Amino acid sequence: MRYSILLFILISNLAHAGVDLVKVDKSESKMFLLDGEFVVKEYHVAFGANPKGHKKQEGDEKTPEGTYTLDYKKEDSSFYRAMHINYPNEIDKANAKKLGVSPGGFIMIHGQRNNLGWLSVITQRFNWTNGCIALTNREMDEFMKLVNVGTEIQIYW
């Protein structure tokens, strides 16, 4: 009985939790959804094939580092659902211009490649994106319910 009550309270709190910050620790392959100081949810995530360091140019297979905003949801992606990260920001564009390269873009949090969700047991064990942050499809559904457009995301090593 006591376990049932605690489980009910936990589920109720999760359902009503407001995520106001997403933190991504690239060194641990973890994403944390936060409501203030409270961790609402933690996920194991996959990144670009070359995850260490900040994204500087298109094709470097790095996931950006820094503070960004999740600025829109995309349901018609090549991957199972997606939410866009507003990379490149003005600083990223200026740095790429100094280097004479394109900063790249279209960095998303997304699920698995369409029709291949069943492979997530394998794909989530290594970094396979071109710089995006990947979840399983089930986790992506949950992420989309918990995180609103306009939420800040902090990505760091």
Rank of each mutant, 00 (worst) to 15 (best):
M1S: 15
S4R: 15
I5Q: 03
L6S: 13
L6R: 14
I9N: 00
I9T: 01
L10N: 07
L10V: 08
I11M: 11
S12T: 10
S12F: 09
N13T: 13
N13H: 12
L14H: 08
A15S: 13
V19K: 01
V19E: 00
L21I: 08
V22N: 05
V22D: 09
V24P: 07
V24N: 05
S27N: 11
S29N: 11
L34S: 07
D35I: 12
E37N: 12
E37G: 10
F38Q: 11
K41L: 03
K41E: 06
H44I: 14
H44W: 11
A46P: 02
F47Q: 08
P51F: 04
H54I: 07
Q57I: 10
E58P: 15
D60W: 04
D60T: 07
D60C: 05
E61D: 14
K62Y: 02
T63W: 02
E65T: 01
T67N: 08
Y68K: 06
Y72R: 12
K73V: 09
S77E: 10
S78I: 10
A82H: 06
A82T: 03
H84C: 06
P88W: 03
D92L: 03
A94P: 14
N95T: 15
A96S: 04
A96K: 05
K97V: 12
K97Q: 12
K98H: 14
G100A: 10
S102A: 13
F106R: 15
I107H: 01
I109L: 08
G111Y: 05
Q112N: 08
N114H: 14
W118L: 14
W118A: 13
L119C: 09
V121K: 13
T123M: 09
T123E: 10
Q124S: 07
R125A: 06
R125P: 00
N127V: 01
W128F: 09
W128G: 02
N130A: 14
A134M: 08
L135R: 00
L135C: 00
N137L: 06
R138S: 11
E142W: 01
F143M: 08
M144H: 03
M144A: 07
L146V: 04
L146Y: 02
T151D: 02
I153V: 08
I155K: 03
Y156M: 10
